[in-house]
Design a protein around this nucleic acid. Sequence first.
DNA 1: TTTAGGG
DNA 2: CCCTAAA
Length: 704
Amino acid sequence: MVLQKRLDYGSSGYQVPAMPHVPRSARGKRSVRKKVEDNRMCAFDLLATVAGRLLSERQNSPTPCNITGTSNPTAGKDIIKQEQFENEKPLKAEAFDQGSCDESALGSEIVFQRQSGYASKEHPQIPFATASSPASAFVKSDNRDSFAGESIISSTRAKRGYSLGTNTITKKCGTQRCIPGSMESYEYEGDGINTPRQAEWRISGKVIERNAPDMNIPEDPMDLDAKPPAVVSSDSSAEVPSCRDRVPHDSSVPKCGDGVEFSVYRDDDENSSGCTYPSPVTTHACRAQRIGDRRIRKLLTSKYWKVDPTMSKDGELANTDVEMKSVFHSRRMPCTRQRTQRSSFKRRKLFERCSISASDGGIFRDGISNPPGKGGIKLEASDSPATLHGANGASSSTTGQKSSYESGDYHVKLSIKSFKVPELFIEIPENATVGSLKRTVLEAVTAILGGGLRVGVLLQGKKVRDDCKTLRQAGIAHAEKLDNLGFTLEPNPRQAPAPLTSSKDPHLLHSGDATEPLARIAPAKPAPYQGAYDANPQPVLTSAANCPESDRDSVQSPADAPSLDKTTANSRALVPVPQMNAEALSVVPLCKSRRSEMVQRRIRRPFSVAEVEALVQAVEKLGTGRWRDVKLRAFDNAKHRTYVDLKDKWKTLVHTARISPQQRRGEPVPQELLDRVLSAHAYWSQQQARLQVKPPPAQTCLLL
DNA sequence: TTTAGGG
DNA sequence: CCCTAAA
């Protein structure tokens, strides 16, 4: 239980990476939305963040090492929410972004492993029920002291009733911004580590054959299971001393790194509590989100999707990184209006064999960060199929920080062997092409990683390179072979995301074209990154947990929506899933799928008689043409009803009232109401006409 | 952001 | 419900 608790990053910190959908009508703050646009995430980010988090967790924990073990794969609670943070200093951000996310530097690999256990037992027909598989992380330290943490990257619902990141909340700590995991504090270490190495991600996936799953899945009971953590193991069980003990509490050091902003996407909508889905990553990833701000949508579509000429025809989309519109449901627009949830992770590259070190400043709790260079976390990936595993040398080290700093050996090394990503459900026609399969998988994966990757398909260990083959032709169509089906995540050299290519960063230029092959940059010292680091000498981040946590709490508000509304919202929360899922996943024609992902149509929510009544009443009072007022007056709590909706409804009501009852469809509206509609409509039309006609007559009179 | 209208 | 031009 302790494990569970400690691993429960839930809504507090890690957030699921940007999703390829942008919610519409989300009424988030502009600032938030803006952030959304810039969000990028890559495995690197996550790795680093997780590492930071783990360390942080460990330090906060009285029993740092008790994380070892295996956790229930379905423990959806252990969710790594993608941390969102953004650098307010453009230049710095740029550098950072470029440095870590450079396309060429990316080399993570995701291996999909067929795992049969998770979903099937409890919900054989509901594969999604197990959507969350563990993403465990191993933290291994050179110093014997180690700890391991496990978390789950999952898009499944958080236990606490959060929908993952439906909304964005920027949390500021005073004037300083916080970065969870203190990405910016990471620095590369020398010897053997300064070369970015592969960070390996393992995705356990199960290929579920045909038949769309029933999306109406109850919360996965398995979430409650307290299975031991699967992968987490540590090299040593030695307990690591809490870093904070060794870290000088310098009051001058801000709790949150300067210039670092930590934003967490979260649902700030009305308290609908449970608009979360147990759906798999894929579902989330592919489900379109809506955003209230159309500009965003436009921006997304045009700026990223449409503009992307580099997109390879086989679908190695670059787009993914772009608009990962989150799939999470917004509370405000209960389950139908989803908000953009882009990772605020700047899109960074995954490095092949990525080794990075992070300054310890980012991981100490209480927001106390150390000056750069004092310590670091080194992330290094290994080939072994473990989970994120790492050791914490620095933390455990009793060496004084000062000496460490000077000697430079005060490092925490995190070795991330693999990440497990929630189970992905993929449904794809037998005659679909391998390329489309790749794209489908990619879309799901991209949702997690933030893009910049392409997916490779392995069949019985061999790469299937021909994207034009059908699955049948490739031999992927048969169940028995599915066991041997694997997917890999590869850097996608073909295209660097627009944001990345724009290089104002000298480092980047120095390194070469961002679109260049990995080899060019990977081996080199991550200059961009370094640059970013340099640019931000101030202590960075820290209380990754604190900020979000508090934020979360503060944001939660009691339900104020009418029960009716809530009920419908909740009950419908799950409705869209199946469609979306199917739609998003059965991507054969790329364009089509993309479109569907992008512009997700809101779920249809017929007006109830009660709503109609309220509408009629309001209109009778306010008249037509004042839809905003009508909205405020009668539907203020119905977040999913926009004034446009009300206007539309009125329009249809008028129409309905004019047609014969036989022609009417849907829930019958009492004739009495319809009569009122007609009379009100007539009245206000007349009023409107009067107002319009009045002036002219007056003028004519004058003229005459 | 709202309104108004066509789709 | 969506999309948009206009205001």
